Simulated scan of single mutants.
Amino acid sequence: MSKKSKKTEAAAAEDYKSALRGLQVELVKLQRHLIKNNLRILIIFEGRDASGKDGVIKRITEHLSPRDTRVVALGKPSDRDTQSWYFQRYVAELPATREMVLMNRSWYNRAGVEPVMGFCTKAEHEDFLQSVPEFERMLVRSGTQLFKYYLDISKPEQKRRLDDRRVDPLKQWKVSPIDKTALRHWDDYSAARNEMFARSHSDDLPWHVVRADDKKLARLNVIRHLMSRVDCPDKDQHLAQPDGEIVFDYADAHLQSGAIAP
């Protein structure tokens, strides 16, 4: 790499660090406002394997109060969970007053991984898609601010990231048996995602799609978008301006145009 290229790369990294720090200051302002006004926020992150959910969540929570911030990443359901109302184990993780909860995958497992991998029946899948809008409206009516982000990546980028996981000793904990099927079931996951969008997106419960092939741009713009949507009197309006090419609300037209990976 030439000296000029190294300087350009270093400058870009410095710009990212500076932009991220400014946005993390805005998140601290948001948390203070949330605590002061007895609010509660739930942020759902969905996306294909290796889409960058962990990285986005880490940057959001990095400087927030651990007492008032929780990350929820539930594992495989227990036998009792499978015999209970589907939403039951998620209800126990919902934010209390003055809390921000970030879900790394959520009840939308039943709209993606479960039907594709055969972990639920067609009837259970359909029941979920019929029930989830009203379940979420009930949460919103009760005072929970709900944000739903879908991190979208291209097939070549997913392959690159999954290959990297397998050889990077620091990422071994991320490797799962489902990784091996991710690329093979690409089209199945696309079809399940598209049905999830069609059945659970609405003006009052929107899905925000994040183009996440560039991890750093995705992280910055998720935070900008979140700050643009919350009511926080102290926020810097200039910083709360996401790139509409990176984060946008779901629409059928985005599937047709290729803005959402096919």
Rank of each mutant, 00 (worst) to 15 (best):
N104Q: 10
I60A: 05
I178T: 06
Y150N: 04
I57A: 02
P66V: 12
S176W: 03
D163I: 02
L226T: 05
A198E: 10
A73P: 04
P242M: 01
D231L: 14
Q130Y: 14
M227G: 02
R141N: 13
I35R: 09
W186P: 01
K53Q: 02
L162H: 07
M100S: 07
V101W: 02
L139Y: 06
A261E: 12
S78N: 03
R160W: 06
P115K: 02
N194G: 11
S84V: 01
S154T: 15
L151R: 07
T82G: 06
A192K: 05
W85E: 07
A240Q: 00
Q83F: 01
E9S: 15
L20G: 08
A123K: 12
G55I: 07
V28S: 10
K58N: 13
K29L: 14
A198F: 04
R59W: 04
A261L: 08
P242G: 00
E46D: 06
D54P: 06
Q24F: 10
L34A: 12
H33T: 14
Y108T: 09
D234N: 10
M196S: 07
L23S: 07
G258M: 09
Q237P: 11
R70W: 04
R141T: 14
R165C: 04
R48G: 07
I44P: 01
G143A: 10
D252R: 13
A73S: 08
V116W: 02
S51D: 06
P233S: 07
R161D: 00
L74T: 01
Q145F: 10
K36N: 12
D15F: 12
L162W: 06
R199A: 08
K17T: 09
P177R: 03
A111R: 00
F135Q: 01
Q130N: 14
R165T: 10
A182V: 01
Q256I: 15
L64Q: 02
S200I: 04
R184C: 09
L34H: 03
A259W: 04
A198L: 09
A251D: 13
E99Y: 04
